[in-house]
């Protein structure tokens, strides 16, 4: 048997195997994967859209119910991307099946592509489901659909990369929850998901500008309503900056075998 000719430069079957495996896990837990974020979103609409939103009037000429939609989608996108990617790589470490991944002829780039691709796919699908769900509650318009898709995909991929980093770093299930709950959730709530930062006093508006989530939500909201807290290019640069920072960390982790190889 001659192995050389049978081993292509890109292990497409390997990438597909991991991707399918990860997607199959989501399908096995379809109820949890889809129903939970949808119900949560509906509850947000009931609380913020109907109960509070009725007293809020419009924000930047957009009804409050519609205004919070991009923020809600982004919030789901952050959490689901991180959860899916971190769980995807942490679970084989936990069960010990990581040995198969490490001994297979797959490059680090291919591993990343498969895990991050699957995590991003799942969160993008969820984001779109929430978008459809929201359209039943509030009239929605998407003025820049190409930008909307670009921000959706870029954010899902970036936070999936971030989740992948957490999954490699984590040594317990508590670690998996630690960063999403203690860092991402507060930053999202303080990042303009439910309000425009123009509504804040000047001092807190300045402080908020140091929150990277502001740029992500603002850019995404701009693609819907053409209103934003910061310029669209600033949003794009911030998102790309986070993306490349995550890539650099992943590259270092693979290069050193950090918490993967002894």
């Amino acid at each position: 048997m001659s192995g050389q000719s049978q081993v292509p430069a890109f292990n497409a079957w390997g990438v597909w195997a991991i991707y399918r495996f990860e997607m199959a896990r989501a399908l096995r837990t379809l109820w949890q994967s889809v129903a939970t974020p949808v119900i949560t979103t509906v509850l947000y609409f009931v609380v913020f859209g109907a109960a509070i939103g009725g007293r809020m009037g419009e924000v930047d000429s957009v009804s409050y119910g519609a205004f919070i939609v991009p923020g809600l989608i982004m919030m789901t996108l952050f959490m689901q991307s991180i959860f899916n990617a971190s769980f995807g790589i942490y679970f084989p470490k936990f069960t010990g099946t990581i040995y198969e991944l490490l001994s297979a002829p797959v490059s680090y780039l291919e591993i990343l592509l498969a895990y991050v691709g699957a995590a991003a796919t799942k969160s993008i699908v969820l984001g779109l489901i929430i978008l459809v769900t929201a359209s039943f509650f509030v009239p929605l318009q998407i003025l820049h659909p190409v930008w909307m898709v670009a921000f959706l995909v870029l954010t899902a991929v970036t936070f999936s990369l971030f989740g992948f980093i957490i999954g490699i770093w984590a040594e317990s299930f508590e670690h998996l929850q630690f960063i999403p709950m203690l860092i991402i959730t507060p930053l999202t709530f303080l990042g303009g998901a439910f309000y425009s930062i123009d509504m804040l006093p000047p001092f807190w508006r300045t402080v908020t500008l140091f929150n990277p989530v502001v740029y992500l939500i603002s850019g995404f909201r701009w693609s819907f309503f053409e209103t934003s807290d910061v310029g669209i290019m600033a949003s794009l640069i911030a998102t790309l900056g986070f993306f490349f920072a995550c890539l650099a960390v992943v590259w270092w982790m693979f290069k050193t075998g950090y918490k993967l190889k002894s």
Partner: peptide
């Protein structure tokens, strides 16, 4: 491997097929 490190929720057919794909076949 020495340890019985397997997936839990996959079927036998799926996990063996997964391994074949992972190794580029």
């Amino acid at each position: 491997p020495q340890e019985l490190t397997t997936d839990a929720f996959e079927t036998v057919w799926d996990t063996v097929s997964f391994s074949r794909g992972l190794f580029g076949k």
